[in-house]
Design a protein around this nucleic acid. Structure first.
Lengths: 204, 204
DNA sequence: TAACATGTTGCCCATTGTGCATGATTGCCC
DNA sequence: GGGCAATCATGCACAATGGGCAACATGTTA
Protein backbone atom coordinates (compact mmCIF):
# COMPACT_ATOMS: atom_id res chain seq x y z
CA UNK A 1 0.00 0.00 0.00
CA UNK A 2 2.12 2.85 1.28
CA UNK A 3 5.37 0.99 1.90
CA UNK A 4 7.08 -0.91 -0.87
CA UNK A 5 10.65 0.31 -1.24
CA UNK A 6 13.18 -2.06 0.24
CA UNK A 7 14.77 1.02 1.74
CA UNK A 8 11.56 2.01 3.48
CA UNK A 9 11.09 -1.51 4.75
CA UNK A 10 14.55 -1.48 6.30
CA UNK A 11 13.98 1.94 7.78
CA UNK A 12 10.76 0.80 9.37
CA UNK A 13 12.52 -2.34 10.58
CA UNK A 14 15.20 -0.42 12.44
CA UNK A 15 12.59 1.85 13.99
CA UNK A 16 10.64 -1.12 15.31
CA UNK A 17 13.81 -2.92 16.40
CA UNK A 18 14.70 0.09 18.52
CA UNK A 19 11.14 0.51 19.76
CA UNK A 20 10.89 -3.15 20.73
CA UNK A 21 14.19 -2.96 22.60
CA UNK A 22 12.87 0.08 24.44
CA UNK A 23 9.70 -1.76 25.40
CA UNK A 24 11.67 -4.74 26.67
CA UNK A 25 13.78 -2.46 28.81
CA UNK A 26 10.84 -0.60 30.27
CA UNK A 27 9.32 -3.92 31.33
CA UNK A 28 12.56 -5.11 32.89
CA UNK A 29 13.76 -1.97 34.63
CA UNK A 30 10.94 0.57 34.63
CA UNK A 31 10.98 3.80 32.70
CA UNK A 32 13.71 5.44 34.77
CA UNK A 33 15.88 2.34 34.84
CA UNK A 34 17.56 2.79 31.48
CA UNK A 35 18.86 5.39 29.05
CA UNK A 36 18.86 5.75 25.30
CA UNK A 37 22.31 4.18 25.08
CA UNK A 38 20.92 1.03 26.66
CA UNK A 39 18.19 0.86 24.06
CA UNK A 40 20.39 1.22 21.01
CA UNK A 41 23.00 -1.09 22.45
CA UNK A 42 20.39 -3.83 22.81
CA UNK A 43 18.96 -3.18 19.38
CA UNK A 44 22.38 -2.97 17.76
CA UNK A 45 22.28 0.60 16.50
CA UNK A 46 23.99 3.87 17.18
CA UNK A 47 22.66 6.54 19.47
CA UNK A 48 22.57 8.93 16.56
CA UNK A 49 20.26 6.57 14.70
CA UNK A 50 17.85 6.66 17.61
CA UNK A 51 17.48 10.41 17.16
CA UNK A 52 16.78 9.88 13.46
CA UNK A 53 13.63 7.95 14.33
CA UNK A 54 12.41 9.15 17.71
CA UNK A 55 12.35 12.47 19.47
CA UNK A 56 12.65 11.02 22.94
CA UNK A 57 12.64 7.86 25.03
CA UNK A 58 8.90 8.08 25.63
CA UNK A 59 8.14 7.98 21.94
CA UNK A 60 10.29 4.93 21.34
CA UNK A 61 8.76 2.99 24.21
CA UNK A 62 5.23 3.67 23.11
CA UNK A 63 5.72 3.13 19.39
CA UNK A 64 6.42 -0.54 19.99
CA UNK A 65 2.69 -1.23 20.13
CA UNK A 66 2.48 -0.35 16.45
CA UNK A 67 5.01 -3.02 15.58
CA UNK A 68 2.28 -5.61 15.97
CA UNK A 69 1.13 -6.71 12.60
CA UNK A 70 -2.62 -6.54 12.41
CA UNK A 71 -2.81 -4.15 9.55
CA UNK A 72 -2.66 -6.52 6.62
CA UNK A 73 -5.34 -8.75 8.07
CA UNK A 74 -7.49 -5.68 8.57
CA UNK A 75 -7.12 -4.70 4.94
CA UNK A 76 -8.11 -8.18 3.80
CA UNK A 77 -11.15 -8.10 6.05
CA UNK A 78 -12.26 -4.77 4.67
CA UNK A 79 -12.02 -5.79 1.04
CA UNK A 80 -13.93 -8.99 1.78
CA UNK A 81 -17.01 -7.26 3.14
CA UNK A 82 -20.10 -6.27 1.12
CA UNK A 83 -19.71 -2.89 -0.51
CA UNK A 84 -22.83 -1.51 1.15
CA UNK A 85 -21.72 -2.27 4.70
CA UNK A 86 -22.20 0.89 6.79
CA UNK A 87 -19.01 2.66 7.89
CA UNK A 88 -19.82 2.10 11.55
CA UNK A 89 -19.93 -1.66 11.05
CA UNK A 90 -16.71 -1.62 9.08
CA UNK A 91 -15.10 0.30 11.87
CA UNK A 92 -16.39 -2.13 14.47
CA UNK A 93 -14.74 -5.08 12.77
CA UNK A 94 -11.67 -2.97 12.10
CA UNK A 95 -11.30 -2.27 15.80
CA UNK A 96 -11.70 -5.91 16.79
CA UNK A 97 -9.17 -6.89 14.14
CA UNK A 98 -6.59 -4.21 14.85
CA UNK A 99 -6.80 -4.20 18.63
CA UNK A 100 -5.33 -7.64 19.08
CA UNK A 101 -4.84 -9.26 22.46
CA UNK A 102 -1.13 -8.58 22.22
CA UNK A 103 -1.63 -4.91 21.38
CA UNK A 104 -4.05 -4.48 24.26
CA UNK A 105 -1.64 -6.27 26.56
CA UNK A 106 1.10 -3.80 25.65
CA UNK A 107 -1.34 -0.96 26.08
CA UNK A 108 -2.26 -2.12 29.54
CA UNK A 109 1.38 -2.33 30.51
CA UNK A 110 1.96 1.19 29.24
CA UNK A 111 -1.12 2.44 31.05
CA UNK A 112 0.20 1.21 34.37
CA UNK A 113 3.61 2.67 33.58
CA UNK A 114 1.94 5.98 32.83
CA UNK A 115 0.77 6.20 36.43
CA UNK A 116 4.35 6.51 37.58
CA UNK A 117 5.55 8.43 34.54
CA UNK A 118 2.98 10.95 33.31
CA UNK A 119 5.33 12.03 30.53
CA UNK A 120 4.24 8.89 28.70
CA UNK A 121 0.63 10.03 28.41
CA UNK A 122 1.00 12.44 25.48
CA UNK A 123 2.73 9.72 23.49
CA UNK A 124 0.07 7.18 24.39
CA UNK A 125 -2.47 9.56 22.95
CA UNK A 126 -0.28 9.90 19.91
CA UNK A 127 -0.27 6.16 19.33
CA UNK A 128 -4.05 6.00 19.59
CA UNK A 129 -4.19 8.74 17.02
CA UNK A 130 -1.87 6.80 14.72
CA UNK A 131 -4.23 3.85 14.89
CA UNK A 132 -7.10 6.18 14.18
CA UNK A 133 -5.41 7.60 11.09
CA UNK A 134 -4.80 4.06 9.86
CA UNK A 135 -8.49 3.26 10.14
CA UNK A 136 -9.49 6.56 8.60
CA UNK A 137 -7.29 5.84 5.61
CA UNK A 138 -8.89 2.42 5.13
CA UNK A 139 -12.38 3.84 5.52
CA UNK A 140 -11.68 6.78 3.26
CA UNK A 141 -10.28 4.58 0.53
CA UNK A 142 -13.27 2.28 0.71
CA UNK A 143 -15.97 4.91 0.76
CA UNK A 144 -14.37 7.62 -1.34
CA UNK A 145 -17.17 9.73 -2.76
CA UNK A 146 -20.05 7.93 -1.10
CA UNK A 147 -19.66 9.75 2.20
CA UNK A 148 -18.28 13.23 2.83
CA UNK A 149 -14.75 13.15 4.15
CA UNK A 150 -15.87 14.91 7.30
CA UNK A 151 -18.21 12.01 8.08
CA UNK A 152 -15.55 9.33 8.21
CA UNK A 153 -13.21 11.61 10.12
CA UNK A 154 -15.78 12.49 12.74
CA UNK A 155 -16.89 8.88 13.03
CA UNK A 156 -13.37 7.57 13.48
CA UNK A 157 -12.68 10.37 15.93
CA UNK A 158 -15.73 9.52 17.99
CA UNK A 159 -14.90 5.81 18.05
CA UNK A 160 -11.30 6.27 19.14
CA UNK A 161 -12.18 9.12 21.45
CA UNK A 162 -14.60 6.86 23.24
CA UNK A 163 -11.84 4.29 23.72
CA UNK A 164 -9.30 6.76 25.06
CA UNK A 165 -10.85 6.90 28.56
CA UNK A 166 -9.37 3.45 29.01
CA UNK A 167 -5.98 5.15 29.03
CA UNK A 168 -6.39 6.63 32.46
CA UNK A 169 -7.86 3.47 33.90
CA UNK A 170 -10.89 5.33 35.17
CA UNK A 171 -13.19 2.79 33.58
CA UNK A 172 -13.37 -0.62 35.13
CA UNK A 173 -12.67 -2.71 32.06
CA UNK A 174 -11.02 -6.10 31.91
CA UNK A 175 -8.58 -6.56 29.06
CA UNK A 176 -8.54 -9.79 27.05
CA UNK A 177 -5.36 -11.07 28.69
CA UNK A 178 -6.77 -10.67 32.20
CA UNK A 179 -8.56 -13.38 34.08
CA UNK A 180 -12.27 -12.77 34.81
CA UNK A 181 -11.67 -13.86 38.39
CA UNK A 182 -9.16 -11.04 38.89
CA UNK A 183 -11.73 -8.35 38.21
CA UNK A 184 -15.10 -9.82 39.11
CA UNK A 185 -17.06 -6.57 38.79
CA UNK A 186 -15.41 -5.34 35.60
CA UNK A 187 -16.90 -5.56 32.14
CA UNK A 188 -14.81 -7.20 29.46
CA UNK A 189 -13.14 -5.23 26.72
CA UNK A 190 -15.48 -6.76 24.17
CA UNK A 191 -18.48 -5.74 26.21
CA UNK A 192 -17.08 -2.23 26.47
CA UNK A 193 -16.59 -2.09 22.72
CA UNK A 194 -20.09 -3.37 22.04
CA UNK A 195 -21.57 -0.84 24.42
CA UNK A 196 -19.60 1.99 22.86
CA UNK A 197 -20.69 1.10 19.35
CA UNK A 198 -24.26 0.74 20.55
CA UNK A 199 -24.19 4.32 21.79
CA UNK A 200 -22.67 5.54 18.55
CA UNK A 201 -25.13 3.59 16.42
CA UNK A 202 -28.27 4.69 18.22
CA UNK A 203 -27.16 8.11 19.31
CA UNK A 204 -26.56 9.55 22.74
CA UNK B 1 -13.70 23.67 43.50
CA UNK B 2 -10.31 22.01 43.19
CA UNK B 3 -8.08 25.06 43.66
CA UNK B 4 -8.36 27.35 46.65
CA UNK B 5 -5.08 27.33 48.52
CA UNK B 6 -3.10 30.50 48.07
CA UNK B 7 -0.13 28.26 47.49
CA UNK B 8 -1.85 26.40 44.68
CA UNK B 9 -2.99 29.65 43.13
CA UNK B 10 0.55 30.96 43.08
CA UNK B 11 1.89 27.73 41.70
CA UNK B 12 -0.65 27.78 38.90
CA UNK B 13 0.18 31.43 38.26
CA UNK B 14 3.87 30.76 37.74
CA UNK B 15 3.07 27.86 35.45
CA UNK B 16 0.86 30.02 33.29
CA UNK B 17 3.31 32.90 33.35
CA UNK B 18 5.96 30.60 31.97
CA UNK B 19 3.56 29.02 29.48
CA UNK B 20 2.41 32.41 28.24
CA UNK B 21 5.99 33.56 27.78
CA UNK B 22 6.67 30.39 25.82
CA UNK B 23 3.67 31.04 23.59
CA UNK B 24 4.77 34.62 22.94
CA UNK B 25 8.21 33.42 21.94
CA UNK B 26 6.93 30.73 19.61
CA UNK B 27 4.85 33.35 17.81
CA UNK B 28 7.77 35.74 17.54
CA UNK B 29 10.61 33.39 16.62
CA UNK B 30 9.12 30.02 15.71
CA UNK B 31 9.60 26.88 17.75
CA UNK B 32 13.31 26.50 16.99
CA UNK B 33 14.04 30.19 17.54
CA UNK B 34 14.37 30.10 21.31
CA UNK B 35 15.46 27.96 24.23
CA UNK B 36 14.16 27.34 27.71
CA UNK B 37 16.44 30.03 29.13
CA UNK B 38 14.72 32.60 26.91
CA UNK B 39 11.34 31.55 28.26
CA UNK B 40 12.17 31.77 31.93
CA UNK B 41 14.12 34.98 31.44
CA UNK B 42 11.05 36.60 29.91
CA UNK B 43 8.76 35.23 32.59
CA UNK B 44 11.14 36.14 35.38
CA UNK B 45 11.86 32.68 36.77
CA UNK B 46 14.77 30.30 37.03
CA UNK B 47 15.46 27.49 34.61
CA UNK B 48 15.10 25.00 37.42
CA UNK B 49 11.59 26.25 38.07
CA UNK B 50 10.67 25.54 34.48
CA UNK B 51 11.49 21.89 35.01
CA UNK B 52 9.30 21.83 38.11
CA UNK B 53 6.26 22.58 35.96
CA UNK B 54 6.96 21.28 32.47
CA UNK B 55 8.79 18.30 31.08
CA UNK B 56 9.85 20.04 27.88
CA UNK B 57 9.51 23.13 25.74
CA UNK B 58 6.64 21.63 23.76
CA UNK B 59 4.54 21.15 26.85
CA UNK B 60 5.02 24.72 28.01
CA UNK B 61 4.08 26.15 24.63
CA UNK B 62 0.81 24.28 24.30
CA UNK B 63 -0.26 24.61 27.92
CA UNK B 64 -0.76 28.32 27.35
CA UNK B 65 -4.12 27.62 25.73
CA UNK B 66 -5.41 26.42 29.10
CA UNK B 67 -4.54 29.77 30.70
CA UNK B 68 -7.66 31.25 29.13
CA UNK B 69 -10.31 31.55 31.75
CA UNK B 70 -13.51 30.04 30.45
CA UNK B 71 -13.93 27.51 33.15
CA UNK B 72 -15.82 29.52 35.74
CA UNK B 73 -18.35 30.75 33.20
CA UNK B 74 -18.85 27.16 32.12
CA UNK B 75 -19.59 26.09 35.68
CA UNK B 76 -22.14 28.86 36.10
CA UNK B 77 -23.81 27.88 32.86
CA UNK B 78 -24.07 24.29 33.92
CA UNK B 79 -25.65 25.02 37.26
CA UNK B 80 -28.16 27.35 35.61
CA UNK B 81 -29.59 24.73 33.30
CA UNK B 82 -32.63 22.56 34.02
CA UNK B 83 -31.75 19.42 35.93
CA UNK B 84 -33.23 17.14 33.30
CA UNK B 85 -31.19 18.53 30.41
CA UNK B 86 -29.64 15.58 28.55
CA UNK B 87 -25.86 15.19 28.92
CA UNK B 88 -25.34 15.70 25.19
CA UNK B 89 -26.98 19.12 25.32
CA UNK B 90 -25.01 20.09 28.37
CA UNK B 91 -21.86 19.09 26.58
CA UNK B 92 -22.84 21.09 23.52
CA UNK B 93 -23.16 24.28 25.50
CA UNK B 94 -20.06 23.41 27.44
CA UNK B 95 -18.05 23.17 24.25
CA UNK B 96 -19.33 26.47 22.92
CA UNK B 97 -18.57 28.09 26.24
CA UNK B 98 -15.13 26.60 26.79
CA UNK B 99 -13.83 26.80 23.23
CA UNK B 100 -13.67 30.57 23.11
CA UNK B 101 -12.52 32.50 20.08
CA UNK B 102 -9.23 33.21 21.78
CA UNK B 103 -8.65 29.57 22.66
CA UNK B 104 -9.42 28.49 19.11
CA UNK B 105 -7.14 31.21 17.77
CA UNK B 106 -4.28 29.85 19.85
CA UNK B 107 -5.17 26.35 18.74
CA UNK B 108 -5.03 27.35 15.11
CA UNK B 109 -1.63 28.94 15.61
CA UNK B 110 -0.35 25.79 17.27
CA UNK B 111 -1.81 23.66 14.51
CA UNK B 112 0.14 25.53 11.88
CA UNK B 113 3.26 25.35 14.04
CA UNK B 114 2.76 21.62 14.33
CA UNK B 115 3.22 21.27 10.59
CA UNK B 116 6.81 22.39 10.92
CA UNK B 117 7.36 20.78 14.33
CA UNK B 118 5.61 17.41 14.63
CA UNK B 119 6.94 17.04 18.16
CA UNK B 120 4.17 19.42 19.20
CA UNK B 121 1.40 17.03 18.16
CA UNK B 122 1.46 14.70 21.18
CA UNK B 123 1.17 17.68 23.49
CA UNK B 124 -1.65 19.16 21.43
CA UNK B 125 -3.50 15.93 21.95
CA UNK B 126 -2.69 16.17 25.63
CA UNK B 127 -4.26 19.61 25.87
CA UNK B 128 -7.42 18.40 24.17
CA UNK B 129 -7.55 15.62 26.69
CA UNK B 130 -7.18 18.07 29.55
CA UNK B 131 -10.18 19.98 28.26
CA UNK B 132 -12.05 16.71 27.98
CA UNK B 133 -11.29 15.78 31.57
CA UNK B 134 -12.54 19.20 32.69
CA UNK B 135 -15.84 18.62 30.93
CA UNK B 136 -16.10 15.07 32.22
CA UNK B 137 -15.66 16.31 35.75
CA UNK B 138 -18.44 18.87 35.34
CA UNK B 139 -20.72 16.32 33.73
CA UNK B 140 -19.93 13.68 36.28
CA UNK B 141 -20.59 16.00 39.17
CA UNK B 142 -23.91 17.06 37.69
CA UNK B 143 -25.24 13.65 36.79
CA UNK B 144 -23.71 11.56 39.52
CA UNK B 145 -25.86 8.48 39.92
CA UNK B 146 -28.31 9.20 37.15
CA UNK B 147 -26.03 7.92 34.40
CA UNK B 148 -23.35 5.25 34.61
CA UNK B 149 -19.88 6.70 34.77
CA UNK B 150 -18.98 4.92 31.57
CA UNK B 151 -21.74 6.79 29.75
CA UNK B 152 -20.38 10.27 30.44
CA UNK B 153 -16.83 9.15 29.77
CA UNK B 154 -17.69 7.60 26.43
CA UNK B 155 -19.83 10.56 25.48
CA UNK B 156 -17.14 13.11 26.31
CA UNK B 157 -14.59 10.94 24.54
CA UNK B 158 -16.69 10.77 21.41
CA UNK B 159 -17.30 14.51 21.38
CA UNK B 160 -13.68 15.48 21.82
CA UNK B 161 -12.48 12.70 19.56
CA UNK B 162 -14.67 14.03 16.81
CA UNK B 163 -13.08 17.46 17.24
CA UNK B 164 -9.51 16.20 17.18
CA UNK B 165 -9.42 15.77 13.37
CA UNK B 166 -9.24 19.55 13.27
CA UNK B 167 -5.75 19.20 14.72
CA UNK B 168 -4.20 17.95 11.53
CA UNK B 169 -6.03 20.45 9.37
CA UNK B 170 -7.44 17.69 7.21
CA UNK B 171 -10.93 19.11 7.57
CA UNK B 172 -11.73 22.36 5.81
CA UNK B 173 -13.10 24.31 8.73
CA UNK B 174 -13.00 28.07 9.25
CA UNK B 175 -12.17 29.15 12.78
CA UNK B 176 -14.10 32.01 14.43
CA UNK B 177 -11.26 34.48 14.05
CA UNK B 178 -10.92 33.88 10.32
CA UNK B 179 -12.72 35.88 7.68
CA UNK B 180 -15.34 34.00 5.62
CA UNK B 181 -13.83 35.49 2.48
CA UNK B 182 -10.50 33.84 3.22
CA UNK B 183 -11.95 30.35 3.06
CA UNK B 184 -14.99 30.56 0.80
CA UNK B 185 -15.60 26.82 0.58
CA UNK B 186 -15.00 26.02 4.24
CA UNK B 187 -17.66 25.41 6.82
CA UNK B 188 -17.55 27.51 9.96
CA UNK B 189 -16.49 26.07 13.28
CA UNK B 190 -20.03 26.46 14.60
CA UNK B 191 -21.41 24.57 11.63
CA UNK B 192 -18.84 21.84 12.21
CA UNK B 193 -19.81 21.60 15.86
CA UNK B 194 -23.51 21.46 15.03
CA UNK B 195 -22.92 18.76 12.45
CA UNK B 196 -20.83 16.74 14.87
CA UNK B 197 -23.43 16.87 17.60
CA UNK B 198 -26.12 16.03 15.09
CA UNK B 199 -24.29 12.81 14.25
CA UNK B 200 -23.80 12.01 17.90
CA UNK B 201 -27.42 12.72 18.77
CA UNK B 202 -29.00 10.71 15.98
CA UNK B 203 -26.35 8.03 15.67
CA UNK B 204 -24.00 7.14 12.84
C1' DT C 1 27.18 0.18 -14.48
C1' DA C 2 27.13 4.92 -13.11
C1' DA C 3 25.00 8.67 -10.95
C1' DC C 4 21.92 9.62 -7.43
C1' DA C 5 19.19 9.46 -3.14
C1' DT C 6 18.82 8.30 1.37
C1' DG C 7 19.72 5.63 5.77
C1' DT C 8 23.41 4.89 9.35
C1' DT C 9 27.23 6.33 11.99
C1' DG C 10 30.72 9.13 14.56
C1' DC C 11 32.03 13.51 16.27
C1' DC C 12 31.03 17.48 18.77
C1' DC C 13 28.79 20.68 21.69
C1' DA C 14 24.87 23.47 23.06
C1' DT C 15 20.82 22.38 25.50
C1' DT C 16 18.19 19.92 28.64
C1' DG C 17 16.68 16.93 32.81
C1' DT C 18 17.12 16.02 37.57
C1' DG C 19 18.84 14.85 42.40
C1' DC C 20 20.13 17.39 46.25
C1' DA C 21 20.54 21.24 49.43
C1' DT C 22 18.82 25.82 50.93
C1' DG C 23 16.04 29.82 51.77
C1' DA C 24 11.36 31.69 51.43
C1' DT C 25 6.46 31.31 51.57
C1' DT C 26 2.20 29.22 52.94
C1' DG C 27 -0.98 25.97 55.52
C1' DC C 28 -2.35 24.19 59.72
C1' DC C 29 -2.98 23.33 64.47
C1' DC C 30 -2.50 24.66 69.27
C1' DG D 1 -0.36 34.93 67.38
C1' DG D 2 3.30 31.34 67.37
C1' DG D 3 5.55 27.43 65.89
C1' DC D 4 5.90 23.34 63.07
C1' DA D 5 5.19 20.92 58.69
C1' DA D 6 4.75 21.09 53.82
C1' DT D 7 6.22 22.66 49.52
C1' DC D 8 7.55 26.13 46.11
C1' DA D 9 11.40 28.68 43.88
C1' DT D 10 16.24 28.61 43.30
C1' DG D 11 21.29 27.46 42.56
C1' DC D 12 24.58 24.03 41.62
C1' DA D 13 26.57 20.10 39.40
C1' DC D 14 26.58 16.60 36.14
C1' DA D 15 24.72 13.03 33.33
C1' DA D 16 21.78 12.65 29.37
C1' DT D 17 19.88 14.31 25.29
C1' DG D 18 19.18 16.52 20.43
C1' DG D 19 20.87 17.83 16.34
C1' DG D 20 24.13 19.92 12.70
C1' DC D 21 27.70 18.25 9.82
C1' DA D 22 30.43 15.13 7.15
C1' DA D 23 31.70 10.54 5.98
C1' DC D 24 30.38 6.04 4.60
C1' DA D 25 27.02 2.21 3.30
C1' DT D 26 23.16 0.69 0.96
C1' DG D 27 19.18 0.92 -2.08
C1' DT D 28 17.22 3.34 -6.43
C1' DT D 29 17.06 4.80 -10.96
C1' DA D 30 18.36 5.75 -15.64
Amino acid sequence: MNKKNLRDIKKEATAFAIADAAFELVLERGFDGFVVDDIVQRAGYARRTFANHFSCKEEAVVMSVLSIKGKNEAEDLITGMPANTPPLDILYHLMKMRLTTELLWKMRKLISLSKQNPTLVPYMLSVMRRLQLECQALLGGLYSGRYPESYTHILAGAVFGAVVPLLDGSLNVRFPDQSPTDLPDAMSFDQFLDMTFDYLRKGF
